Amino acid sequence: MQAPYFHIHRDSVSTICITIGGVWDFRIAKSKLNSLASALHKHQNKRQITQIMFADDARIDLAFGIFLKQHLHSTPEIIASNEINATLNQCLIASIPPTPKHSFVKLFFAQLGKGVYEFFQSFIDFLNFVGMSFYYLVISLFHGNIRLTPLLYHINESGFKALPVSLLTAFIVGFAIALQGAVQLELMGAPLLSIEMTAKLSLREMGPFILALVIAGRSASSFTAEIGVMRLTDELDAMKTMNFHPVPFLVIPRLFALIIVMPLLVFLADAFSLLGGMLAVYLQLGIDMGSYIDKVHESVSWTHFFIGIVKAPFFGAAIALVGCFRGFCIKENTQELGRITTISVVNALFWIIAINAIFSFITSRLGI
């Protein structure tokens, strides 16, 4: 392979001819290309290059042709063989613009603005979806056309099948909270307060909240994946073609099922959370079951229990709405299915925390 070279000839005081020879292809050293580029730029600034001649042993490829045209700001006469001329004619890019330099500040604010806009648009779409879902739910209740079979199916799938892990989680959390409370309050000389603290926390917060987190991780992802797969396989389009609206057929049974089943699950979660607290108090303080129940009956009113029950339908509605809404957002491919399913669980957890905080604020203001 002939080594690449170039020579600069001065034809007169103001004109220069550059002769290029050897093999100039993608394997050429960068230093050689930089030397040629420097020579071209130096003499083109003075408008002295009038001719570029390729020697008989010259061989070029498309990459070098693009490189040459990129660094030729003027149009000198090119003397070359037919093969080289054909290669140069294929280089339609006369000038490749330099890579733009992005400012970090501009890029940051651009991404921030894009994120804010997408969040706002998604929030508006979600509000529209919530309004449409409750509209169809009310219509279905007033007309008595709730589809019983899918309703019972989703009560079983989303509710009762989640009982083992939900009750075990509530039991463990109740045990841990009661144990830590008993240890700390025992050091302060008021160990019996741990029973009241555990019972109130279990009924008001830990039972409903922990249960909602478990159901969100299980059911929100399930709803999103089911509806997302139906969208990817064009089942939703088929339903619309048959004049079946997807919301009454897909969203309402799931929404109504979680609204119904969540209070029942919260009742059981409260019971297991209290059992966990009772076991912890017995192990740490030696208080038996009868004394524990008597203390709970004396110090804890039914108000705490009803507050947790009232929260449950709101938790269920939030989980179902977020899961179904994100399922309808899936449009592209199976990779999008996984990403949106993850977002669905995160959104459901956020709304559960937000609803719980709102209830805590309202009940504290009302002194309940």
Results as ranks from 00 to 15, higher is better:
25 D>Y: 05
293 I>V: 10
165 V>S: 07
233 T>G: 04
207 G>T: 00
283 L>E: 07
59 R>S: 14
90 Q>Y: 12
326 R>D: 00
199 A>Y: 07
228 G>W: 02
174 G>I: 00
330 I>Y: 06
140 S>E: 10
188 M>P: 03
248 P>E: 00
43 H>P: 04
177 I>V: 13
187 L>C: 02
70 Q>G: 11
365 R>N: 12
49 I>Q: 08
108 F>H: 05
229 V>E: 09
58 A>N: 06
227 I>W: 06
273 S>N: 03
215 I>R: 01
231 R>W: 07
247 V>Q: 07
259 I>L: 09
303 T>N: 13
61 D>G: 02
268 L>T: 12
364 S>W: 09
119 F>H: 09
145 N>C: 03
103 S>I: 04
239 M>S: 01
326 R>P: 00
57 D>H: 13
159 G>Q: 07
236 L>Q: 04
170 A>I: 02
316 G>K: 02
232 L>S: 01
1 M>N: 01
148 L>Q: 11
103 S>W: 05
179 L>F: 15
66 I>W: 03
213 L>A: 13
93 I>R: 07
258 L>A: 09
291 S>I: 13
162 A>S: 15
11 D>P: 02
368 I>L: 14
45 N>V: 13
167 L>K: 12
66 I>N: 12
24 W>F: 04
182 A>E: 01
116 V>Y: 07
215 I>A: 12
67 F>E: 10
62 L>T: 15
335 Q>W: 11
357 A>K: 02
357 A>C: 11
283 L>A: 10
285 L>Y: 03
19 T>V: 15
222 S>M: 06
345 V>I: 14
347 N>Q: 15
188 M>D: 09
112 L>T: 13
56 D>K: 10
101 K>P: 00
103 S>F: 04
307 I>D: 05
154 H>S: 10
146 I>S: 00
367 G>R: 06
126 F>W: 00
69 K>S: 04
48 Q>P: 08
271 A>R: 04
337 L>S: 07
258 L>E: 03
104 F>T: 00
138 V>L: 14
91 C>E: 06
79 I>Q: 15
15 T>P: 00
275 L>N: 02
353 I>M: 08
65 G>M: 03
85 N>C: 12
256 F>R: 05
360 S>W: 04
81 S>T: 14
